[in-house]
């Protein structure tokens, strides 16, 4: 299998957990750039072209609250989990744990 094909499959695998990763990171308030940094430090590299629209989509769905704040002479839009988002994160986390243990069993065989 070529490196290119492997990279595509790797990206497909990561794409499935992006929403969970973003929701999990937004238990604390973040603006776009700081959220990206946090995810990168956790080993999840996501490009801006994917992250920023995703965060807006989650906000439009009511999963995140946002507000503009002034700091360092500039304004930034901060996002944080809403009440609905917190509930969804708990559900998705449970789903993730189950999926993780099921996959682990399959990989052992």
């Amino acid at each position: 299998m070529s490196e290119e094909h492997l990279e595509k499959l790797r990206q497909e695998l990561r794409r499935g957990v992006l929403v969970l990763a973003v929701l999990g990171s937004l238990k604390q308030p973040h603006y776009g750039y700081s959220l990206r940094k946090q995810l990168q430090e956790a080993g999840i590299d996501i490009d801006e072209g994917t992250l920023y629209p995703l965060v807006r989509r989650l906000a439009d769905q009511g999963l995140l609250d946002s507000e503009w704040q002034q700091g360092d002479g500039r304004e930034r839009r901060y996002y944080q989990l809403s009440a609905i988002g917190t509930g969804l994160l708990a559900s998705l986390s449970g789903e993730w744990q189950t999926l993780n243990s099921n996959i682990a069993k399959l990989l052992e065989v």
Partner: peptide, 16 residues
């Protein structure tokens, strides 16, 4: 709304 947020993100990127 999107233009305002995009500009903030780009300026953060440049700062970084």
């Amino acid at each position: 709304d999107i233009a305002r947020e995009l500009k903030a993100n780009i300026l953060d990127r440049l700062e970084g």
